[in-house]
Protein backbone atom coordinates (compact mmCIF):
# COMPACT_ATOMS: atom_id res chain seq x y z
CA UNK A 1 0.00 0.00 0.00
CA UNK A 2 1.22 3.50 -0.64
CA UNK A 3 1.06 6.38 1.79
CA UNK A 4 -2.48 7.47 0.79
CA UNK A 5 -3.97 3.97 0.87
CA UNK A 6 -2.44 3.31 4.27
CA UNK A 7 -3.93 6.55 5.53
CA UNK A 8 -7.42 5.59 4.38
CA UNK A 9 -7.13 2.12 5.91
CA UNK A 10 -5.91 3.59 9.20
CA UNK A 11 -8.87 5.96 9.36
CA UNK A 12 -11.13 2.92 9.49
CA UNK A 13 -9.13 1.41 12.37
CA UNK A 14 -8.74 4.41 14.63
CA UNK A 15 -11.19 6.99 15.93
CA UNK A 16 -10.17 10.35 14.42
CA UNK A 17 -6.44 9.66 13.97
CA UNK A 18 -3.93 12.51 13.74
CA UNK A 19 -1.32 12.38 10.99
CA UNK A 20 1.95 14.21 10.55
CA UNK A 21 2.29 15.14 6.92
CA UNK A 22 5.78 16.55 6.63
CA UNK A 23 7.62 13.29 7.28
CA UNK A 24 8.99 10.91 4.66
CA UNK A 25 6.84 8.02 5.85
CA UNK A 26 3.24 8.07 7.02
CA UNK A 27 3.25 9.08 10.67
CA UNK A 28 0.27 8.52 12.93
CA UNK A 29 -0.04 9.93 16.43
CA UNK A 30 -1.99 7.78 18.84
CA UNK A 31 -3.21 7.89 22.39
CA UNK A 32 -1.01 5.61 24.56
CA UNK A 33 -4.17 3.95 25.94
CA UNK A 34 -5.07 2.40 22.60
CA UNK A 35 -1.55 1.30 21.66
CA UNK A 36 -1.75 -2.37 22.62
CA UNK A 37 -4.90 -3.13 20.67
CA UNK A 38 -3.80 -1.00 17.76
CA UNK A 39 -0.41 -2.72 17.64
CA UNK A 40 -2.04 -6.13 17.46
CA UNK A 41 -4.23 -4.96 14.60
CA UNK A 42 -1.24 -3.57 12.72
CA UNK A 43 0.64 -6.81 13.19
CA UNK A 44 -2.05 -9.23 12.11
CA UNK A 45 -4.66 -7.40 9.98
CA UNK A 46 -4.47 -8.51 6.39
CA UNK A 47 -3.21 -5.72 4.19
CA UNK A 48 -1.09 -4.18 6.95
CA UNK A 49 1.06 -7.15 8.05
CA UNK A 50 3.51 -4.83 9.79
CA UNK A 51 5.64 -7.67 11.08
CA UNK A 52 8.99 -5.95 11.39
CA UNK A 53 9.58 -3.34 14.10
CA UNK A 54 12.97 -1.94 13.18
CA UNK A 55 13.35 0.98 15.53
CA UNK A 56 11.93 1.99 18.89
CA UNK A 57 13.02 5.23 20.41
CA UNK A 58 11.92 7.96 22.78
CA UNK A 59 12.32 11.71 22.52
CA UNK A 60 12.34 14.16 25.41
CA UNK A 61 10.48 17.35 24.41
CA UNK A 62 10.96 18.91 27.88
CA UNK A 63 7.18 19.18 28.39
CA UNK A 64 6.38 15.59 27.41
CA UNK A 65 7.91 12.48 25.90
CA UNK A 66 7.23 10.93 22.55
CA UNK A 67 7.76 7.24 21.91
CA UNK A 68 8.42 6.50 18.24
CA UNK A 69 7.91 3.10 16.64
CA UNK A 70 9.16 2.50 13.09
CA UNK A 71 7.32 -0.36 11.44
CA UNK A 72 7.60 -2.04 8.10
CA UNK A 73 6.14 -5.06 6.41
CA UNK A 74 8.30 -7.78 4.90
CA UNK A 75 5.34 -8.76 2.71
CA UNK A 76 4.16 -5.40 1.30
CA UNK A 77 7.25 -3.26 2.04
CA UNK A 78 5.27 -0.29 3.26
CA UNK A 79 6.32 1.82 6.21
CA UNK A 80 4.44 3.27 9.12
CA UNK A 81 5.67 5.43 11.97
CA UNK A 82 3.61 5.40 15.15
CA UNK A 83 4.09 8.06 17.79
CA UNK A 84 2.59 8.24 21.25
CA UNK A 85 2.75 11.28 23.49
CA UNK A 86 3.49 10.46 27.12
CA UNK A 87 3.11 12.52 30.25
CA UNK A 88 6.44 13.75 31.61
CA UNK A 89 5.59 12.94 35.22
CA UNK A 90 4.26 9.45 34.55
CA UNK A 91 5.76 8.22 31.25
CA UNK A 92 4.00 4.87 30.86
CA UNK A 93 3.00 2.88 27.84
CA UNK A 94 2.08 -0.72 27.27
CA UNK A 95 4.88 -3.02 26.07
CA UNK A 96 4.70 -4.63 22.64
CA UNK A 97 7.43 -7.18 23.34
CA UNK A 98 4.86 -9.98 23.09
CA UNK A 99 3.93 -8.84 19.57
CA UNK A 100 7.40 -8.03 18.22
CA UNK A 101 10.12 -9.85 20.18
CA UNK A 102 12.73 -7.27 19.23
CA UNK A 103 10.87 -4.70 21.34
CA UNK A 104 12.07 -6.44 24.50
CA UNK A 105 15.62 -5.11 24.04
CA UNK A 106 14.64 -1.82 22.46
CA UNK A 107 12.20 -1.02 25.24
CA UNK A 108 14.77 -1.86 27.86
CA UNK A 109 17.09 0.61 26.17
CA UNK A 110 14.42 3.32 26.19
CA UNK A 111 13.75 2.61 29.86
CA UNK A 112 17.43 2.67 30.74
CA UNK A 113 18.32 5.89 28.96
CA UNK A 114 15.05 7.84 28.95
CA UNK A 115 13.08 6.42 31.87
CA UNK A 116 10.02 5.33 29.90
CA UNK A 117 8.11 2.64 31.80
CA UNK A 118 6.76 -0.11 29.58
CA UNK A 119 4.00 -1.78 31.56
CA UNK A 120 3.82 -5.54 31.25
CA UNK A 121 7.43 -5.84 30.03
CA UNK A 122 8.84 -9.23 31.13
CA UNK A 123 12.24 -7.94 32.22
CA UNK A 124 12.37 -4.15 32.57
CA UNK A 125 15.82 -3.47 34.01
CA UNK A 126 18.80 -1.27 33.31
CA UNK A 127 20.53 -2.38 30.14
CA UNK A 128 23.65 -0.28 29.59
CA UNK A 129 23.94 1.52 32.91
CA UNK A 130 24.62 -0.28 36.19
CA UNK A 131 21.69 -1.39 38.33
CA UNK A 132 22.40 1.30 40.93
CA UNK A 133 22.56 4.17 38.42
CA UNK A 134 20.50 7.24 39.31
CA UNK A 135 18.74 9.29 36.65
CA UNK A 136 17.98 8.91 32.95
CA UNK A 137 20.97 9.99 30.84
CA UNK A 138 19.22 10.90 27.59
CA UNK A 139 16.75 13.27 29.22
CA UNK A 140 17.39 16.91 28.48
CA UNK A 141 17.54 17.91 32.16
CA UNK A 142 20.03 15.18 33.13
CA UNK A 143 23.07 16.45 34.97
CA UNK A 144 26.16 14.45 35.82
CA UNK A 145 29.07 16.63 36.96
CA UNK A 146 31.45 13.66 37.14
CA UNK A 147 30.95 11.78 33.87
CA UNK A 148 29.59 14.47 31.56
CA UNK A 149 31.71 16.99 29.73
CA UNK A 150 29.84 20.08 28.60
CA UNK A 151 30.87 21.54 25.26
Amino acid sequence: MNKEELKIRLESLLVSPTFEDAAEWLTVIIDPEVWEGFARQLRSTEGFDLDYLFCVTAVDWRTHFTVVYHLTSTVHRHMLVVKARLDRERPEIRTVSDIWRTAEFHEREAYDLMGIVFTGHPDLRRLFMTDEWKGWPLRKDYEDPVNMIKL
Binding site: F54, R101, T102, E104, F105
Partner: peptide, 12 residues
Protein backbone atom coordinates in the same frame (compact mmCIF):
# COMPACT_ATOMS: atom_id res chain seq x y z
CA UNK B 1 19.11 7.64 17.40
CA UNK B 2 21.31 4.99 15.88
CA UNK B 3 19.57 1.75 15.08
CA UNK B 4 22.47 -0.67 15.16
CA UNK B 5 22.22 -4.10 13.55
CA UNK B 6 24.19 -5.94 16.23
CA UNK B 7 21.80 -4.90 18.99
CA UNK B 8 18.80 -6.58 17.40
CA UNK B 9 20.78 -9.59 16.21
CA UNK B 10 22.06 -10.17 19.74
CA UNK B 11 18.52 -10.24 21.11
CA UNK B 12 17.93 -13.49 19.21
Amino acid sequence: KFRSPGFSNLSA
